[in-house]
Design a protein around this nucleic acid. Sequence first.
DNA 1: CTTTTATCCTGTGGGC
DNA 2: TGCCCACAGGATAAAA
Length: 303
Amino acid sequence: MPELPEVETIKNVLLPIVKNRKILGVEILRKSVVYGLKEEFIEFVTGTSILNITRRGKFLIFHLSEQKVIISHLRMEGKYYELAENEALSKYARVVFHLDNQTKLCYDDLRSFGRMAMSDEASYLTSKPLIDLGPEPFDITDVNFLYKQGQKTKRPIKTSLLSQKLFVGLGNIYVDEVLFKSGLHPLTPTKYLSIDDWEMVVAHSKSILKDAIASGGTTVKSYRPGKDISGNFQTQLRIYGRRGQKCVVCHRNLRFIKVGGRGTTFCPQCQLHAHSPLKIAIVGKIAAGKSTVLDIFMQAGYC
DNA sequence: CTTTTATCCTGTGGGC
DNA sequence: TGCCCACAGGATAAAA
């Protein structure tokens, strides 16, 4: 669900609400959401205070007293919100933190894909899962490492960008936006990207993510950064969710394919395959298989 | 080592 | 209406 701008927004909305609150108790309503033993987690958190909340990629980091840290990932549907102690929990509440001001911090997760893990200040950045993350997009000043890393794989560029290993923050929505703006076909083998391509990918990632943060994120389906708050970047999406429509730039029919199992919308005119011929002739007699071949090319998004 | 596949869950919407 | 299937913003462990 949430990508970098949504997690950043959630962090900003949540911090003033829970900062310096002491956690009096914890209820775990779905134990699979917490790594390790339920009792261990409750013991770990109870009695600590929430000193700060930060973000690393799409992970939320709760900094507690006693050098304790909770790493929280919302995956598709996770969300945090505060309720008064006497208010009823939602059907999808998975973890509830009881605070010292008659309120409770609720973690809701319809699909229960989200996870929370215990860690500490000394090691959370250098142990899994954060250890494998690439840099924050806003910290990138030199794209050379991306070019070098990219040379090693022929995986589709979209898959590489979603992996969070080159740099963090892009999910299925923003990666389609970035590739569209960069004029790159989502199936382009990563090794074919030039230094200039990487410059463009990084520049557009920064500007799109920055604009999305300024809009409070994108509200698709159920995302809410907080109670009664929703993002509105969805009005600025130029390619994501426009399946079946025409390109906002060239007015050709947009194409929808699967890349690494993820739904992908792109413009066949504005996003050409890098380093592939622009024209191919297919000749043959009737029933020789020309249209079959054409279908395969079209399926792959070459024409 | 890299890359692909299966999996964790629940709900919604389209087609028949 | 009911049923079945495809799809949904993500990451990870296991398998290949």
